[in-house]
């Protein structure tokens, strides 16, 4: 019989991994269509959490309403981010410029700048410490399953994430916008020749990715009861690691890597002090880069 302690850590690890997965997908989608890393993705997560707790403080809506508010705010954040930090650098439309190095470097700086501006602005507005959240909204009520005690947040995070991931898979496979996103990721120039509005597709990719990131933010915020302006940094790094491990543009790869990362982190606290748990992600990153430079699931990746 497995020690129930491990089962408990496993549950926490899966919740953690699901949240990383939601975030990693935002990175992966955007990397797919533009070949760039969106360094402001962590702040989208923070904005999602703040939007959620502000809605709670203002009018105490039911949980599902909060989810929709956060999704809407995330969508808006993604839209604005693309307009301000990415579109201005996309001036040419032949294949050499679409995924060019110059654009990659320019947007790296501009998204980092947006990230710093957003974080500092939130610190000025709200202060850098933990925000107070109505206890009734926290998703950490214990549930006993035999010898294992989990919290309702574990279930909520699992269900919400699975719904989002499933919805995304459906969207990418069967909807016109999903096909456009895949087409632009696969061959941006080809997408133009079949009449896909690539600018609109890119904005929508940011919107979808940011909705997932914002949702991850509020879920974690209510799970740990910790919402503060720099909360997005560490999960952002973890999600980035999951994306790299997953092979940069593979969504299933990113999700699996995120789950592995979450579980490994949570189990590692058994053996080392929890302050060291963050090191697990960096260790994974280094091992991946040294031994699997294509990522664990990115072996077939082609350069466009």
């Amino acid at each position: 019989m497995i020690d129930p302690y491990y089962l408990q850590q496993l549950t926490i690890g899966i919740s953690l991994g699901m949240v990383y997965a939601l975030m990693a997908i935002g990175f992966t989608l955007i990397f797919g269509v533009l070949n760039v890393v969106n360094f402001a993705h962590g702040e989208v997560y923070t904005i999602g959490a703040f939007a959620g707790i502000m809605a709670i403080a203002a009018f105490g809506p039911p949980f599902l309403v909060i989810v929709f508010i956060v999704l809407a705010v995330g969508a808006l954040a993604g839209f604005s981010l693309e307009r301000v930090a990415f579109r201005p650098f996309r001036r040419f439309s032949d294949e050499a410029s679409l995924k060019s190095r110059a654009m990659r470097e320019a947007t790296l700086m501009s998204s980092l700048a947006m990230s710093i501006i957003a974080r500092e602005a939130m610190e000025l507005l709200f202060g850098s410490e933990f925000q107070t959240i109505d206890i009734g909204y926290l998703i950490n009520k214990p549930i006993s399953l035999g010898p294992v005690t989990i919290v309702n947040g574990d279930i909520i995070i699992f269900v919400v994430s699975v719904l989002m991931l499933g919805g995304l898979q459906w969207l990418l496979k069967y909807s016109a916008i999903g096909l456009s996103i895949r087409a632009v990721s696969n061959n941006p120039l080809g997408a133009k020749y079949v009449g896909i509005n690539t600018d609109r597709t890119i904005v929508l990719t940011f919107v979808i990715g940011s909705m997932m990131g914002a949702l991850a933010g509020i879920l974690v915020g209510l799970y740990y009861g910790a919402v503060f302006p720099s909360m997005g940094f560490i999960p952002g790094v973890k999600a980035f690691v999951a994306m790299v491990m997953g092979g940069l543009s593979s969504i299933p790869g990113a999700v699996i890597a995120a789950l592995v990362l979450g579980v490994a982190e949570s189990l590692s606290t058994t053996f080392v002090s929890s302050v060291w748990a963050d090191m697990v992600a960096y260790l994974f990153l280094i091992v991946t880069l040294v031994f699997f430079p294509q990522g664990l699931f990115g072996a077939r990746r082609e350069r466009v």
Partner: peptide, 14 residues
Amino acid sequence: IFSNMSVLENLTIG
């Protein structure tokens, strides 16, 4: 063409 997508998807896209 979209090499990662199926022939049918290539034909029907857009």
